[in-house]
Design a protein around this nucleic acid. Sequence first.
DNA 1: CGGAAATATTACAGCATGGTGACAAGGATG
DNA 2: CATCCTTGTCACCATGCTGTAATATTTCCG
Lengths: 229, 229
Amino acid sequence: MAANILVVEDEPAIQELLSFNLQQAGHHTLNATSAEQAFGLLRNTLPDLILLDWMLPGVSGIEFARRLKADAYTKTIPIIMLTARGEEQDKIVGFDTGADDYITKPFSPRELMARIKAVLRRRAPQMTDDPAETGGLRLDPASHRVTADGKAVELGPTEFRLLHFLMTHTERVHSRSQLLDQVWGNQVFVEDRTVDVHIRRLRRALEETGHEHLIQTVRGSGYRFSEHE
Amino acid sequence: MAANILVVEDEPAIQELLSFNLQQAGHHTLNATSAEQAFGLLRNTLPDLILLDWMLPGVSGIEFARRLKADAYTKTIPIIMLTARGEEQDKIVGFDTGADDYITKPFSPRELMARIKAVLRRRAPQMTDDPAETGGLRLDPASHRVTADGKAVELGPTEFRLLHFLMTHTERVHSRSQLLDQVWGNQVFVEDRTVDVHIRRLRRALEETGHEHLIQTVRGSGYRFSEHE
DNA sequence: CGGAAATATTACAGCATGGTGACAAGGATG
DNA sequence: CATCCTTGTCACCATGCTGTAATATTTCCG
């Protein structure tokens, strides 16, 4: 868990309710009461998910979502729409703007949490605390442990995050800059080549148990985590 | 157990019934017959849980709950709602205000106690008086005693609470700020590094019997209680 | 085969992080 | 009032982690 979630909601009571429940679940929250304020916050940090009220004073929620999806920097951020109206028509329009999910008031906190987890699982599996298990490796985010065939693997913080991302996005090539974005964060300025070094460190740690073949180089493209070959 | 429970209920008969059962179960009770009176009591002490009647003269129970959840000082207190109406609609609104559970009159004392225990366990397992036992350590909240392989361990109050929390949430990394929230309380402002010092004090106390390995550092993340390694 | 481009590997300096002991303020106790 | 205990903070130190650059190796292609 531990995602940064931006809540855009003008009604203080609901704002409070949402923030409280999110924090209870271990997330960090950013709060905005209008689309304008939200844009200001987005200039500093990009959240992992946005909870967005349908109806907002000034720029409406739906217009806000449209703008986010039009901007390359923000268009990948998952959005969950909140609305008082439960009409089918609205849902369709909501999805059209790029909302990833939809929840109608009144809702139970339990349901909201379930949807958040579902969206994060789809868009950013490494953000949840579900254990990942592939090719003899097991990585448990909750206890922050990695084992290879049952034996403990020692990793530094960056290698841990790197492996976590790779294990939740297997059988896929990731370029160095994609890895920097996903593992380091999209605002960090670091040499592309630095990725090579951390891949090296990760491989060395996996050599202990002979699992280094899981981390594969794709010449000209990047790296891949794969069970095959 | 031994939690402080605030009962907000205007009907004397039910008030009496609740208080009696709660005290029977070893809890301390505070009584209020209206939301106004309850607010007065909250200025002095924050209870561990609130039993709240849905219908109250003056400010209604649901409005009372909403206000509690809007205040940073009280918003973390679990609330169990009492209502005569068993309609589904009510339940949904109840959860919206942040009530943690729901019970409809008439109810059996047995059921009520079970729900109270469940809520306390969910919100703060270390608040129940179930003894915790792991890796040779035994911590008994009721007698406020800790033993390591049968030998007594001397701990200060903070170290006791810290160990209690860790033993009820093992095999999991806790960041310093999570520990501050859970062990110190979320209204305290204390340096993150203070946690280190108390971890040190806890470890030193456990060194006497060679159990200090149970408290593990996860560099860059926090601390963990674990039997392994 | 020769050479260029891409990747692997190593070394290292700077920085971040956690461990530790000391200490003063505050509270409880007698 | 004196004393003891607890608590939070700080300063200092040791260690681990990180990014970069320099060097070695591999791969690809004419």
